[in-house]
Nucleic acid binder design. Sequence first.
DNA 1: CAGCAGGGGGCGT
DNA 2: CGCCCCCTGCTGG
Length: 263
Amino acid sequence: MRNHVNHYKCPLCDMTCPLPSSLRNHMRFRHSEDRPFKCDCCDYSCKNLIDLRKHLDTHSKEPAYRCDFENCSFSARSLCSVKSHYRKVHEGDSEPRYKCHVCDKCFTRGNNLTVHLRKKHQFKWPSGHPRFRYKEHEDGYMRLQLVRYESVELTQQLLRQLQEGSDLGASLSESSLQGTILETVPGEPGPQEEAEEEEEGRGDEATALSASQDTPSPVIHVVNQTNAQGEREIVYYVLSEAPGEPPQPLSPPQGASWKSFGE
DNA sequence: CAGCAGGGGGCGT
DNA sequence: CGCCCCCTGCTGG
């Protein structure tokens, strides 16, 4: 749940990570085809032991996981099935918690909301981020997270790459990194205005905005870019000065999203 | 067709 | 580990 500033950029894609170790993991999982862990029973293989163990559970005839609630006989072949059973049956937690921030429709599971966001509202993934993330709000609902934190250097590098439209540069050296916070707010106007963002091609695309009360006013770079799928998308890069803690959820532009305007 | 849910895999933390 | 992905079958409108 903690927000992190992403200082480390993957040289092979747009992924950014808060730590060298997480970047290393990213590169191993995302950019390596090595699958050292192999299943003896079938041709499955994977990149770590945990996943292999999960897979082995699927071979066992008997359910490997039991509900430990008293006198409950529920069992399943995956831990997450038991967990969700426990929440639903023994904790009475059956109300849909995942809420669409566009139309307020609620869903019981995140991936079902993901399907809704993609089908109904034409959401796409931001480049370098393989999935949607959901964040718990004050009202207890999980909503799509629209902000990520990166360093100023990374922002400027990304902006430069976007302007040049050329290949990805090398990853940043550790010494050049500062504690400054950047938020990336991929955006698109709400369902109302169907957005015609024409070229804001004049040299500096930065727009100054004043954020909420306490936070220093961030600078928002509005970038009209083409993502990996060749679709247009609008991205807001927000730089703020606060060095330590990420600022309060300065409300993103209404309806901000990763919607694209292609198809 | 939309939403729900079970099962199983990928991977960020 | 936990969250989210996909695939798939079921259900109600």
